[in-house]
Design a protein around this nucleic acid. Structure first.
Length: 260
DNA sequence: ATGCCAAGAAAGTCTTGA
């Protein structure tokens, strides 16, 4: 089972680039963030015609997440538990029925949190505390589980080409990194780092100042695996070349292959 | 430090992103 996470930065602007990539990479499951669309505005039929089941959790203008799957989905839920007053569309989860195993997949768009300090950073940390609580209950089910998406966290200095530029940013502050580590340390395996321990691998390059051409990137899109999912892991990678294509997102797909 | 670019909502120029 091939699962990818991809912050597409707007479904309307990315429908061609996303379709091309789906046709080439043929993921069984694509976890999309920043669809920037309401559910009714998502081009559902277009992706159904490509063989995908489409589940969205959108909102007007920004945010929004979606799951595209070529395998059957069960028990789709929307919204991160823990705060019924939270209106932002940043979480959708479902069970993917693989031939060999069922895999619970969670698609998240974690708040950016800038500027610091301020209410946006408070919201980020509160959201991460809710994620920790929910992740703990999901892990307790002791099943294959993938919690993936745009975490908006640079886990360590080697995950940025210019870590000094991010030192005071919400993506890299010690408090942000500590919150991410608390989640990982519940028992997750960070998929990419099982395959590549070297610095210099990124998943985001800013549109500004020639960041892609200079390889001035950061690694902020992650797939966290429960022990039962990690046991199924066959491969993991980042499809960085997508960033160099026409009309790209500023993020690229990050993927895993599971024996499921 | 800021926001060089991009997207969306909307119809001028904001907001948001990272």
């Amino acid at each position: 089972m091939r699962i990818a996470t991809f912050n597409i930065n707007g479904i309307k602007a990315r429908i061609e680039a996303l379709s091309d990539w789906l046709g080439e990479f043929k993921p069984d499951v694509a976890l999309l963030q920043e669809i920037k669309s309401v559910d009714e505005g998502f081009p559902r039929a277009h992706f159904e015609d490509m063989g995908y089941i489409v589940e969205t959790h959108g909102q007007k203008g920004f945010n929004g997440v979606a799951i595209l799957s070529r395998l059957p989905l069960e028990d789709v839920t929307r919204g991160l538990p823990g705060d019924d007053s939270d209106e932002q569309a940043r979480w959708i989860e479902a069970t993917v029925m693989g031939a060999g195993a069922a895999v619970r997949v969670c698609c998240l768009y974690l708040p950016n949190g800038n500027p610091v300090p301020g209410p946006k950073y408070d919201y980020k940390l509160a959201w991460m505390a809710r994620l920790e609580t929910h992740a703990r209950s999901l892990l307790a089910q002791e099943q294959p589980l993938v919690v993936a998406g745009d975490y908006n966290i640079i886990p360590q200095d080697e995950d940025a080409a210019r870590p000094e530029a991010w030192a005071a940013d919400a993506l890299a502050l010690p408090q942000s990194r500590a919150a991410f580590r608390r989640i990982v340390n519940l028992g997750f395996t960070e998929a990419i780092r099982t395959r590549n321990a070297a610095p210099g691998i990124y998943s985001f390059w800013d549109y500004q100042a020639g960041a892609w051409e200079k390889n001035n990137g950061i690694r902020i899109d992650h797939l966290l695996l429960s022990p039962q999912a990690a046991d199924l892991l066959q491969d993991a990678g980042i499809d960085a070349a997508v960033r160099g294509r026409d009309k790209p997102s500023d993020h690229v797909p990050v993927w895993i292959e599971l024996a499921a």
